[in-house]
Write a protein that binds this DNA or RNA. Structure first.
Lengths: 150, 150
DNA sequence: TATTTCGTAACTATTATTATTACATGAAAA
DNA sequence: TTTTCATGTAATAATAATAGTTACGAAATA
């Protein structure tokens, strides 16, 4: 079950980019994300339009972060991806005139709208720097565990 | 864009059933929901297992609500449908060992889990009676508007 | 100029969901 | 008891959304 995982894939890509001091090519990112370079370009195009990354062609070209990690939240990235639907379930639209359907949709809309607002707010609280720090912490733990094992 | 709209479809069906004093057949519900009777049976099967509805075969058979409207919440129905995934996006699972991926997944899991908990709690606050009342209100308004227009 | 790399359109493949067909089972009516 | 009606369910087909691929053009660098 691996639906629309673009958001996590993009975060994954951006953090890998942050670990390097030169551009990463679409081919490199494709290997890293186990996908196709064309898919990488398509996805990153949205981020470029949002000025979160830049791309360069030819020798030494590839993808580069355009802003400091502290300035970019997961919400920014979600927005740059076109604010894809967060929820699996939509409303019925079989009989738009049906008053029963309207009552149902109204109740569901209320609940889903609130949950969505909360989720988006949460995405806005986490920056790429937060994620990078968490990665570094995990990396340090990993090394410590290796060392202890000898 | 009409993904997995089972929840709203089922609510729609149950409220229509509530408006009647005899069982509704799968064919009737299928017309009402603009789908196929077999799809209706498949979907309602989950509700029957959860004892929210009963089904009867042969003449006079069909689907009947098994509990008072006040006793059934949208959350009960969500549960009866097998608690389908609420979110469109899952986590990346390309490289389970990748520490970058783990950091990303952890942050996303946190946000999604909280939003899901909130949404499910909200579903638990709305009963079928709530929806039926809302329907009746809309119906009264509808009639008043018709009357005023002559 | 040769090579690298992105940009993008067109097409194919995969997957998830929904719809359909077919037939068995059970219940009520004739 | 036979006929009719309705659900139960497996198997299959159709549809739609997403992802992957191919192909080729454009731009930048060596």
């Amino acid at each position: 079950m691996k639906r629309n995982s673009r958001l996590s894939a993009v975060l994954h890509a951006l953090l890998h980019m942050a670990e390097r001091d030169r551009p990463m090519t679409s081919d490199e990112l494709a290997v890293c994300l186990q996908t196709n370079p064309v898919v990488v370009r398509r996805t990153m195009a949205g981020l470029r339009e949002a000025a979160l990354v830049t791309s360069g062609r030819g020798h030494g070209g590839g993808w580069t972060l355009a802003r400091p990690l502290e300035d970019v939240t997961m919400r920014d990235i979600y927005a740059a991806l076109g604010e894809p639907m967060l929820f699996q379930m939509g409303n019925a639209t079989e009989s738009p005139g049906c008053l029963v359907e309207q009552a149902v949709n109204h109740a569901l809309d209320d609940a889903f709208r609130d949950a969505e607002a909360m989720l988006i707010a949460r995405l806005g609280e986490v920056t790429l720097a937060t994620l990078a720090d968490d990665f570094k912490r995990r990396f340090a733990e990993h090394r410590a565990a290796l060392k202890q094992r000898g």
